[in-house]
Design a protein around this nucleic acid. Structure first.
Lengths: 175, 175
DNA sequence: CAGTATCCTGTCCGATACTG
DNA sequence: CAGTATCGGACAGGATACTG
């Protein structure tokens, strides 16, 4: 809305960051997935100023990630709910949460992904779209698509060769 | 390093954002996964000022996501490679990329996830960790872990009930 | 309850210039 | 090539007060 730094970038990652790149936006979405919907619920949970919260909510609504709905007429009460686009954001949150839990906590895990039907833990995984078979991360490349520039194509090809040829290089740790 | 806004937050998402919350950090990682490693490669690809790039690289190294290595002695040449922690970040990038491609492009897909062994497209999926079976997103809840507060537990339980009881609510689109 | 209106500050970031 | 030094602007974000 007010900022358009990467909104016209061809890269989907950059475009995504243009929509949800602000810290608070992602934390708001996290809370939305945990069931929060009202203005004051977000404010209390996140401890942010109403001004900024209003700004972030407005942006998320403008980008079609949340939508605002009046759920009560007298007095008027609103809540913010996830659109389909917003719901589709869950895997990002899941991946972020999984990474955070694996690498950034000291054993005090505080948020887990579970299947609400049976409380089984969930894991993010990368799978072959056709076969549904899991693919080890070291084989995956962020390949450029049709809209990418030539330079990117060359880089990507080089990277793929490297990863396939010399896998140990990519699992090596700093000395 | 210089900022510690959420570094002590119990939520893994918040902690993750504390490490890679800056726009450029994620874009640097994206490029790292595409094979870039040298300072000037990043700079040229991202078009950012050397000052800022140095700062971001330093942060990523400090957080153990990249590591700096001299690959040539005379003259000294360095490159930045992904640590294991950095490599584990791929699912996040994948999820972000998938979301961006599905929702934020006008058909001009520019980056795809593929299995480098056979060029098959990759998809991010949420699966049951034990059975490896895919779980539909609407059943997934971001449940609080042991370290979460009571309030969060209550919210989460409420959310789970809502999602399980009234699924249509969560797939509804704005009028 | 659900925000808006202001004011202020930190810092993210850009641009340019310079060094081993 | 691989950065550091410095300056300045824009804006995210904080704090407080106020309204329907």
């Amino acid at each position: 809305m007010q900022k358009t730094r990467f909104s016209d970038a061809p890269c989907p990652v950059a475009r995504a960051l243009d929509r949800v790149g602000e810290w608070w936006s992602i934390l708001i979405l996290r809370d939305a997935f945990q069931g929060l919907s009202r203005f004051d619920e977000f404010q209390q949970s996140l401890g942010m100023s109403p001004t900024l919260l209003a700004r972030r909510l407005k942006d998320l609504v403008a980008h079609g990630i949340l939508y605002k709905e009046r759920y009560q007429t007298r007095p008027a009460r609103y809540h913010y709910l996830l659109t389909e686009r917003g719901n589709d954001f869950l895997p990002v949150l899941a991946a972020l949460s999984q990474w955070g839990n694996n690498h950034l906590t000291d054993g005090d895990v505080c948020a887990l992904l579970v299947d609400g039907r049976n409380d089984r833990p969930i894991q993010v995984q990368l799978v072959n779209r056709d076969t549904q078979q899991p693919v080890p991360p070291q084989f995956i490349t962020l390949a450029p698509g049709p809209a990418a520039s030539d330079g990117i194509h060359q880089r990507a090809e080089l990277m793929r060769q490297r990863r396939l040829a010399d896998l140990p290089e990519f699992t090596k740790e700093p000395s």
